[in-house]
Design a protein around this nucleic acid. Structure first.
Lengths: 184, 184
DNA sequence: AACAATGTACACAGATCGGTTTACATTGTG
DNA sequence: CACAATGTAAACCGATCTGTGTACATTGTT
């Protein structure tokens, strides 16, 4: 059920998909849906909650393999580049949903914010272990690039490679300027 | 009339505002609206067409005053920072509308794309006159930062200052690496 | 076999959606 | 004054929206 919700809400947008359509696509009666969820808003929030980890996992490197912080960061943009090439890419689902709702207090928007901050935290961890001068600032900048590239790719197609390049430059500038241990 | 359309569509989203509401807010009968516009989609497209120039004008520096390319570029992010502080900031209207429509062929989405490319072209002109190594790549990167900062500011509040800083770094890297004439 | 829980199909409510029709008021022009 | 053009309000169209109410089928448990 939440799978169908993810598919539809992400592909067409929250407002563009009604609960009737959702029930039909999920092969479930509308009545059952409203027994498990108190409202459509709750469906959207829960859908992001279960779909979110799958999304971020696609961008994080496998913890078991050994990668340098720099590699882990650039891997995010490589993954984005691959994702953006697919025909079913519609931009970052967190940004899209939160933007469409236009309400930062909306439960779904809070979930979206949470997963966005997970990406920033991931960047910050890499920046920290690489010895960046200002890990948090660098992490925020890398997140900006990610969001911009996602939106731009959905709008015009292309450009995530430019984001990777920009990320590389920002990373280099922040690391070589920082303390001794190099971030290679 | 298009003023009201801009206000509502940008604040609440295209799907969230019906034509009835639009007519009421614009103090105009719905019938008159449909005599001037053939459909709601056309309203959205036309609204972006007339509202767009006002938006980009807010980010471009006055042509009459003398500014260095670098100043002109950074001014964009300063303006974004100021705009994002206002309570009526909901992210880049072009990105938001185009994203919500989920259809690159939609007339309004084409208009949005056009104005986005105007920003990139503006960046590229500055990069060119400053003698950047790859003006187009730099311009695309700066646009990514802009879009990312817009979305992020709308979602979480804050962060356009980080974008300004990142833009500065990217600019410095691209200019000092380029040919002789400095972009100060 | 009796039972409560759960799911389903389906109609329904009241509102709104994009868009049209009708009948009437206003207006500038000849 | 007559006329055509334009705008208005309001009802209306069929469809869809979120959300319920109802009556029936299925299920696992005792």
């Amino acid at each position: 059920m939440l799978d169908a919700a993810a598919r539809l809400f992400i592909r067409e947008g929250v407002h563009a998909v009604g609960v009737d359509r959702l029930a039909q696509e999920a092969q479930v009666s509308k009545r059952s849906i409203y027994q498990h969820f108190e409202s459509k808003d709750a469906i959207v929030a829960d859908m992001l909650r279960v779909y979110g980890p799958r999304v971020v996992a696609g961008y994080f490197s496998d913890d078991k393999e050994e990668h340098s912080p720099r590699e882990r960061v650039l891997h995010v943009y490589d993954a984005l580049h691959r994702a953006a090439e697919a025909s079913d890419f519609y931009g970052c689902p967190f940004v899209n949903v939160a933007t469409e709702l236009r309400d930062r207090e909306h439960p779904a928007a809070q979930v979206a914010q949470h997963f966005k901050s997970e990406l920033t935290a991931y960047f910050e961890r890499q920046a920290e272990t690489a010895g960046a001068a200002s890990p948090h600032v660098l992490a925020v900048q890398l997140t900006l690039l990610f969001d911009g590239a996602s939106a731009s790719a959905a709008l015009c197609g292309g450009t995530p490679l430019a984001a990777r390049l920009a990320a590389e430059q920002l990373w280099n500038a922040a690391i070589t300027a920082g303390p001794g241990d190099d971030g290679s």
